[in-house]
């Protein structure tokens, strides 16, 4: 293919690494840490919940930067990055929302509540879903790329809001502001257990970040491949 050998090898290595990390974090979540005292087994969801959040967060930031870069340089690769990041980010963000909702049922006694952070996260998801609608609605490819870049910048306001909402409305019942907080975690007895929770949490977040980068990279290659196929088809049609 047209990719350099070393990059392909890096991607391959990343793919294996993310599979390995996923297995290790799975084992850590289910066997390394014990169940949490006040929440019981359901607390284990929490690791994936946060991991998926950080993955989607990273991807949306990437899409925001890609939007700015596309408007500045007009290179198609930035548009590819934006589209790929948002598509994968939507998946991760959905994992984040759904696991949060399932976790909330036994803990908060409700599937859904208009907690500030929950609200902003769902707005974020809707904004990026609308981005996909915008892309499919505009036919001229140049204009589509430009509008998509503009909209990805606009949609980033919801990500920004998600970060700062905690500062504006400190009354959120969300247990985590940024990383693990020991106050509402209600960590079990001895200190050794709490470090286990922290370790598992950090490791799972790291795992999801690596997975999101790997899937993003594959998704970009997929986009390149689609374009290549498109140009080959056009060439064939022109010759015919």
């Amino acid at each position: 293919m047209q990719y350099s050998e070393s990059r392909t090898r890096t991607l391959q290595w990343l793919t294996y690494a993310s599979i390995g990390l996923f297995i290790i974090s799975f084992l850590m979540i289910f066997f390394y840490v014990g169940p949490e005292q006040t929440q019981g087994e359901v607390q284990r969801i929490f690791y994936t919940h946060l991991g998926a959040f950080f993955g989607s967060f990273l991807l949306f930031i990437a899409a925001f930067i890609a939007g700015i870069q596309y408007l500045r340089t007009r290179q198609e690769k930035w548009d590819d990055l934006g589209l790929s990041a948002i598509e994968i980010g939507l998946g991760f963000s959905l994992i984040n929302i759904v696991t949060g909702s399932i976790w909330a049922r036994p803990i908060w006694n409700t599937w859904w509540t208009w907690d500030p952070r929950l609200t902003t996260v769902s707005i974020m998801w809707l904004a990026y879903a609308a981005y996909m609608m915008l892309r499919s609605g505009i036919e001229d490819p140049n204009r589509r790329r430009r509008f998509a870049a503009v909209y990805s910048i606009l949609a980033f306001s919801s990500v920004f809001l998600t970060i700062i909402i905690i500062r504006i409305r400190p009354d959120t019942i969300h247990p985590v502001a940024a990383g693990p907080t020991s106050t509402s975690e209600g960590i079990e007895g001895d200190f050794a257990m709490s470090t286990r929770i922290t370790e598992t949490l950090l490791f799972t977040i790291f795992t999801y970040v690596v997975i999101s980068i790997t899937v993003l990279w594959h998704r970009i290659r997929l986009e390149n491949r689609a374009k290549q196929i498109q140009s080959r088809k056009m060439k064939l049609l022109l010759n015919a």
């Binding site: 359901v42 607390q43 994936t48 399932i102």
Partner: peptide
Amino acid sequence: MPDTLDYMILGYVVAF
């Protein structure tokens, strides 16, 4: 410790 195993399993099935 409350018994919340069902929700944990449901959460992980959906997540995966």
